[in-house]
Design a binder for these strands. Structure first.
Length: 100
DNA sequence: CTTGTGACGCATC
DNA sequence: AGATGCGCCACAA
């Protein structure tokens, strides 16, 4: 599946968004399918922590959110309060600007 | 086939 | 900024 490849192509220290991955794969409306895939697929086979919500929002709950924050931080990703500094760490695709 | 639900996203209030 | 509503896709009941 294209989604999987996209996610795997995200380099360490960078992040992408659910909608971004979907759009980059050619399906701008499939953001929910991407989320489902990340939830379903084994965490040891996919860099799930490099995928955040639009704007850099962590969409996980409780412990998982903290976990993701920690992992990203270890890769050098900086946070601006609750969200990731997308300006510097988002993986070079911004579909919403392309389709604008 | 119809609903309900969720690691979503965006417009509104 | 936080809460609601609506649209979206996939899947389980």
């Amino acid at each position: 599946m294209a989604f999987r490849r996209m996610i795997l192509s995200i380099p360490p220290g960078k992040v992408s968004t659910y909608g971004g991955v979907a759009a980059a794969a050619g399906y701008p409306q499939y953001h929910r399918a991407v989320a489902r895939l990340l939830r379903t697929e084994p965490i040891d086979q996919l860099p799930w922590h490099r995928v955040v919500g639009v704007g850099g929002e962590i969409k996980l709950g409780g412990a998982a959110a903290h976990e993701q924050r920690a992992r990203l931080k270890l890769e050098g990703v900086q946070f601006n309060g609750k969200r990731v500094e997308m300006e510097h760490f988002e993986y070079s695709i911004r579909p919403w600007e392309i389709y604008k």
